[in-house]
Amino acid sequence: MSEAAQPAPAPRRKRRRWPLAGLLGGVLVLFWLMMALFGPMVAPHEAGRIVDMDVFTPMTAKFPLGTDYLGRDMLSRILHGARYTVGVALLATLMASGSGLILGMSAAVWGGWLDMLVSRCLDTLSAMPSKMFALVVVAAFGSSVPVLVLSAGIIYTPGAYRIARSLAVGINAMDYVRIARARGESTAFIVREEILPNMTGPVLADFGLRFVFIVLLLSGLSFLGLGIQPPEADWGSLVRENIGGLAEGAPAVLMPALAIASLTIGVNMLIDNLGGFRRRAGGEG
């Protein structure tokens, strides 16, 4: 507690245990990432193949997640859909967080009119509710994967920008950045060495959060029939096409929705425990 001793003894290096919730979240996220990459390979059936005469069958050993409204294997369809739900959202998140980070950093470091201009433009963008913007874009351009990635990416850029900017502005005012400036370091050095390394934690957490928002937005669109178009299907579309089975309580309706929930809750649990991860990494680095 006291630092009176001069020189003070070396502080104990604390090793923090990886919290259970964080671990579980990490496993869930990793699992779905794997499925987005290799899902179609491990799926027992082809996504579009009708394998059962019966529709909306409950869970059986043969069809672990039942069958859908045409008698297709739900497990296979969910595994195939992972590519769309996870992949498209990941691309859009990369776009939103990437452009947000670049713009936010530039605004913070250069300030002045650039900051004003970018902030005002993005403020206008965020004056529209996210679903509304997506609906308007889809109405105008129709729905396709590039349109979905672009519009989700644009919608969530202002949020990422605001976080990145406020972090960078805060760090930019730190004395160690002032010292680097007074030393005559270039802007590139200051951004790379002094600012960026100190904002990775919050930026990563924000990336996760934004990913969750985008997954929810895109599956919401698909649920409305305005997202991924048939014959391809993400998890939102799977819920939509099987909504007829709701009255029977068919797993075909619930399972894709639960898949989304497991992904988003997993990401949430992971980022909530990023702090512990950071401290551990710091202790070992």
Partner: peptide, 21 residues
């Protein structure tokens, strides 16, 4: 946290399942 991070349609379908079905 759970409700906020799941899609609205899951909440709605779950409600239908419980209260209507």
């Amino acid at each position: 946290v759970s409700v906020v991070s799941v899609p609205e349609f899951l909440v709605a379908t779950a409600a239908v399942l419980v209260f209507a079905v």
